[in-house]
Each structure stands twice: as C-alpha cells, then as structure tokens.
Amino acid sequence: MKRFLSLFSKDSLGKKTIIGIPYIWFLIFFLLPLFYVLKISFSESIIASPPIAPLFEYDGDEQTLISTLRLSNYGYLIEDNLYLLAYLSSIKIAFFSTLITLLIGYPMALAITRANKRLQLALLLLVMLPFFTSLLIRVYAWIGILRTDGTINTILMFIGVIDEPIVLLQTEFAMYLGIVYAYLPFMILPLYAALEKQDKSLLEAARDLGASPAIAFLTVTLPASVSGIVAGCMLVFIPAVGEFVIPSLLGGESTLMIGRVLWDEFFANRDWPVASAVAIVMLAILIIPIMLFQNQQAKSSGE
C-alpha cells in the first residue's frame, strides 16, 4: 500500500528525473543516431559539405515539397558483388573466429575456476590486462611479428626451416589470428562468470556415481555454462563482424570485411549515403545476435 501511495507523492518527480536523465541521453545519443543512418541511406550523395542531398527539397516556383528519397544506395549494394562478398566473408570470418576463441577460451576459463581463490584473482587480472590494453596496440604488435622481416620469419630462417621469408601478414590467416587474439579476453570473462557460479558438488556427485570425466563434463559442467557461452560468443561475434582495425592492419586487399568497406566508402570515397546503407544492412544482419545478447544480459541481471 505504501509503495502504491508513493506513486502519487512528490517523490515520483524525483524518480522520474533519475529515470529520465540516462533514458533521454541514450535515446538522443544512441537510438536517434541510428535513425539518422537510416534516413541518410535513402538520400543522394552530392559534392558538398556534408556530401548528402536533402531528402526533401522545397521548390520555390511550384511551392511544393519534392521528395528526393532514393533506394538507389541499396540497389547499388546488390548490383556490385563486392558488398555481398564482404558481408558473407565478414560473417564467415567472425563465425570461425568466435568458434576458435570459444575452443581456446573455454578450457582457460574452466582452469581458472579450478584454481584456489587467491590464484583465481591473479589469473583473472592476467585476463583483464589485455582486455584493457589498446586494441590498436595489440594488433600492431602482430605486424612486427608477422611481416616478412618480422620475428617469425627471422627465427624460421635462422634455424633453417625456410630459405625465403613466407608471407604471413595481409592474409586471411593473419585476420583470424588478430581477431582471436584481440577478443579472447571477451570470451573468457563471461565464461568464467558462468562457470564460477556452478555448484561444484554436482560435479563431484556425478564422478562419485561413476561418470567418466568426459561424461561428467558433458552432462554437468557444459549445460550449466550455456549462459556464459552465449554471452561470450555474442561479445566476440557481433563486434567482429563490423571490425575495422584488424582487417585494415592485418588483412590484405583480398580479405574483404564489411567494416573496412564501410570505412573506405565513408573516408576514401566520401559516399556517406552508401556507407549508411552498408551500416543499415549490417545492423539488420546483427539484430538477432544483438537481441540474443540482450536477452542474456537481462536474464543474468535479473538473478
């Protein structure tokens, strides 16, 4: 009853303000901008600053409003194979990178939960340090290692495994390496959070009842960590699809990724409407993974 009455008291104004400030901020600076991308994706590119034609023009002689709404940017994305290939290759690269990251990250996360409490904190800190270290710098570190006169080639030539330096940089291999390397901490942290919550006595019970370690893992540990797997995979897959820095520094001309295509369309070609259309299609592809992630977030914060 008290709570019900408080809805009508002066307090509810305070409550509305507390809700209102962050709500309005995210509406204006997160949601509204996405609608502008949608709007610009229907306009024409012109040589001006900014290089976008207005969607509606007022004709002074006829005294009418003329719509210049265009679907041509989307048509352009379909006509030119480059975009379709870039979307497909981004999804493929992000998918397999996520899978590899999961395969490397899962045993690491599990190993951390099995350590004693003090060591756990130290190991978690070791996972978090790269998480906080500039992605640009960590990707840059690989350039020095992979290039033809870099660390790997120098070592391999020194011990005589190869005579000629091999091309490692600007290959698809380098891209996978870069994405797995950069996003591994994003996978380990949610996996750890899920695995750590698990009741260890369940696993012991399974073992006592005669389950082999593999069966115990598959029937007890794995199912209980699904929330961490979903969160980790989404945290890697979604940003990886739109990744720009890694394809730009480690990928070659032949390894297409849509984030880089968008960047070039925007900065090099200055075709903002096409860049916007590229972004809208990317968002449409990612909307289901994003909703999956949000569901997971809502569930885990509801606990």
């Binding site: 600076f29 901008p33 996405l34 502008y36 991308v37 709007k39 610009i40 989404m234 945290l235 979604i238 940003p239 699809v241 739109g242 990744e243 720009f244 984030g259 968008l262 960047w263 925007f266 903002w272 860049a275 916007s276 972004a279 990317m282 968002l283 990612l286 993974p289 994003i290 992630f293």
Partner: peptide, 13 residues
Amino acid sequence: VMPEVITGISLLL
C-alpha cells in the same frame, strides 16, 4: 556489442 563503425557513423550523422 555495437560494431564501432556503426556507432561512429551514426553519431557523426
């Protein structure tokens, strides 16, 4: 999780 290129272009617009 939003790809940075989308956040970037949307805020610029």
